[in-house]
């Protein structure tokens, strides 16, 4: 038996390619002059159909690969439209809307991410979007935005725009019952949150190593060092669990719902906790808009709202899984 949660050679290659693209086209400082992220680049990379089969126009990779890609997206605070597109492409496929799926994968049909709030919807990244996707308890829905004439508001995060609408004002393109798709959406949200947790850990550790006070780097002070250690711990445990959940979901094991819920929970904690400590470690600069720290906090909030708050007691927790029944 093996449960190997380390990266394979292929996975390293995809990651390197993704990192090169993201470093070049999506550096964090692009967010200081907000404009919509170039979805063409994301689509050209194959990100929106990464784990769809090749005969369906996808790239034929696995869930574990897709998860890694979204961790990188989280690190670079890539627009939520990328996550929305990846989920919407699958929903379109399951609904039999083949040409819509093709347009989503190609980046021609932009997708907004719809967050439900009672009878209302909040759409993230609505600019230029033709449709929106939302999911919840075992299903996913596509909403038509073409005739909506939506408002487009600034959010608390200058780099993220939003629109609000009563849910019944937006026509359904279709809704599909698909527990695996809903779990996958949760998993990709967790992946993006983990990416943010990793980025803020690295920012904090980097700053703690160079910022000098009392004649030494602040990272030599234990109060600061232990904050950093706590960021590393939260990140590592969330990262290991994310890989476990991706493996289990990819292999359609019976404990997938529990593993994904756990991954989501740990990733939320890591992303928000690390974002907060990162601000603290940067001192006055951390509170300023010139420091990128606040961007991670705000995005972590947005993505946390995109994930459901799963009831972790609702599923059986396996003590030993992989007892193939």
């Amino acid at each position: 038996m093996t449960i190997d949660l380390n990266l394979s050679e292929d996975q390293r290659q995809i990651l390197d390619a993704a990192r090169n693209l993201l470093e070049a086209r999506f550096p964090i400082d692009r967010l200081r002059n907000p404009g919509a992220d170039p979805m063409e680049d994301i689509a050209a990379f194959g990100a929106l159909g990464l784990a769809l089969p090749e005969e369906a126009g996808g790239s034929g990779f696995g869930v574990t690969d897709e998860v890694l890609l979204h961790v990188e997206f989280g690190r670079h605070l890539v627009t939520p439209a990328a996550l929305a597109g990846a989920i919407a492409a699958r929903a379109a496929r399951e609904l039999g809307l083949a040409s819509l799926m093709q347009r989503i994968i190609a980046g021609d049909a932009r997708v907004a991410l719809a967050l439900r709030n009672g009878d209302d919807l909040t759409l993230l990244a609505p600019g230029g979007a033709a449709l929106a996707v939302s999911w919840g308890a075992g299903s996913a829905s596509l909403l038509d935005l073409s005739g909506a004439g939506l408002s487009d508001e600034q959010s608390i995060d200058d780099s993220l725009r939003l629109a609000r609408s009563p849910a019944d004002a937006l026509p359904f393109l279709g809704s599909v019952h698909s527990p695996n798709l809903a779990l996958l959406a949760e998993l990709l949200v967790a992946a993006q949150l983990l990416g943010m947790a990793e980025a803020t850990r690295d920012m904090a550790v980097g700053y703690a190593g160079v910022r000098q006070q009392f004649g030494q780097p602040i990272g030599a002070f234990q109060a600061v060092k232990h904050h950093c250690a706590n960021m590393a711990i939260a990140t590592e445990i969330a990262s290991a669990q994310l890989s476990m959940a991706a493996l289990v979901l990819g292999n359609e094991q019976p404990d997938a719902a529990f593993q994904v819920a756990s991954a989501g929970h740990l990733a939320q904690r890591a992303a928000l906790g690390n974002a907060r400590l990162n601000i603290q470690i940067h001192g006055g600069f951390g509170f300023s808009a010139e420091c990128d720290a606040h961007l991670f906090l705000k995005r972590a909030h947005a993505f946390r709202l995109a994930g459901t708050r799963a009831d972790l007691l609702a599923h059986t927790a396996p003590l030993t899984h992989l007892t193939r029944s």
Binding site: I3, L5, N6, E236, I237, A238, A240, Q241, S243, M244, F258, Q259, A261, S262, A263, H265, L266, D311, L312, L313, A317
Partner: peptide, 16 residues
């Protein structure tokens, strides 16, 4: 629920 998730994460970490 939080304890359960942490235990799952610890298990994944140990495997890794």
């Amino acid at each position: 629920g939080d304890l359960r998730a942490q235990a799952a994460g610890l298990r994944a970490l140990t495997w890794r």
